[in-house]
Design a protein around this nucleic acid. Structure first.
Lengths: 245, 245
DNA sequence: CGTTGGATTGACAAATATCAATCATGGTGG
DNA sequence: CCACCATGATTGATATTTGTCAATCCAACG
């Protein structure tokens, strides 16, 4: 997996302060409620159960959604049924913005989800909303770039490690402090996704995801409780396996 | 490569009018100059030669760039030198928007490029600009979703076919009319990228890209003139190989 | 006319997918 | 309460795809 390492030769063009280049820029809120400034406006609130489909790819895009609580996954399908999960959204994130007039992805709730629903035309007449949307979209693009790196260039083990790190709050991001001094460097991540969903997000098969997790378990890098709770005895150790370093 | 076809079972949820789900929503302008409404504002113009690096990943994000003419590629590097080209931009597209304050990608000119350069704070004080940026970002996200599907789920041949279709104007998009009646269904695409750049965009190696192109050539699906001019005798035939159908 | 860098091709290796069997786990009904 | 079933997860054996390494090839250019 070591290709064209020579391309690296402009690596330290900037300040050279050792920031890691493929790290997300900010930590993601996890399952805590998001208090939107949209709340005060003419928005409807919608609730969905785990695995409800919120909107379908190619349906007319009538609304803009903001996640108040819970997680939502966006995915696309190919004609023969292959699926790619293109994004996983958390409280504060938006989806449903569709310049073409049609949703470009389907959206599915990964757990109990509360949404704020806005008419799609609202955005055209509301400057404050625009600035907010703008910031959301720009952050999303950075995360999509990270995910392209994962899908295009990382090994199965690196993908799974990156995936696990994504759910460790305040770690694996730029400026990650390492474990707080004197504290243990462990964490528990709760996967709200089936193996199939994880595989479709990481561009792998369920079997490969399963094998990588089993391998991590054998090597003592993780331990699994109840199939969807994963304990990480050393966050740093996982982080070093993400391919970023 | 046929996995979990059953997921397809909500396929015709919408109007069922046979639109293809993974197709880009609009055709891309190719190398024609873009007349921006930004031109009238306090913008500087910048010119770059082919393969100049315009900005470096992790450098402080001081400016916002709009492509007036030419193509630009955005890429990220992993610590060991692996590279992923995350996007290819055309006239009218923006880059350099960085919520974190640092560019999240490096940008490199793929040919002679003219840019309009804007102070990054301009966007905060200019509502008309915001609406424009917004639209650009939302379109870009759709294309990044398409690219995630390519990287995560398509075979090497499908990736190359998709790549070629990208440079055929007005085809391979939603609402593609097929060949104009009575006209020949051929096209010529000019690749402004080396095999290495193509490979890094498609998440493959140069050898694999080369082999796929040779295979297409042997089967009469393309013919190559002068290494960077590719003739497609039947656009429809390529389109059917993209995995979208 | 030789040099050089990108592109192609071949032989082989490695990673991941596929197919099939087995193993949990949680829910249901007797 | 327990046997049974259904669903998802794991594991193993094998196939396929793509990557790796090395040897040309080829076209542009001095």
């Amino acid at each position: 997996m070591l290709q064209h390492a020579k391309i690296n030769d402009h690596a330290s063009s900037g300040e050279g302060e050792g920031r890691y280049r493929d790290m997300p820029r900010k930590a993601r809120p996890e399952s805590t409620a998001w208090t939107s400034f949209l709340a005060s406006r003419s928005t409807r609130t919608e609730r969905h159960h785990s695995h409800d489909v919120i909107c379908y790819e190619d349906d007319p895009a009538t609304h803009l959604f903001e996640i108040a609580q819970g997680s939502v996954m966006l995915y696309r399908l190919l004609g023969d049924g292959r699926r790619q999960v293109v994004d996983i959204l958390s409280p504060g994130d938006l989806f449903g913005l569709a310049p073409s007039g049609y949703y470009d992805c389907s959206a599915e709730a990964l757990c109990e989800v509360t949404l704020r629903v806005l008419d799609r035309h609202e955005i055209d007449v509301n400057p404050a909303l625009q600035a907010h949307v703008n910031h959301c979209l720009a952050s999303r693009i950075e995360l999509l770039h990270s995910h392209a790196v994962l899908l295009g260039r990382k090994s199965a083990a690196e993908r799974v490690a990156t995936f696990l790190m994504r759910f460790v709050p305040e770690r694996g991001v730029v400026g990650c402090p390492g474990p707080a001094v004197g504290e243990k460097d462990n964490a528990v991540v709760v996967l709200r996704m089936t193996r199939q969903e994880i595989a479709d997000y990481l561009g792998l098969t369920i079997e490969t995801v399963s094998r990588v997790l089993s391998d991590f378990k054998r090597r003592g890098i993780i331990s699994i409780e109840k199939n969807d709770r994963i304990h990480l005895p050393s966050v740093c150790r996982i982080c070093k396996m993400t391919g970023i370093h």
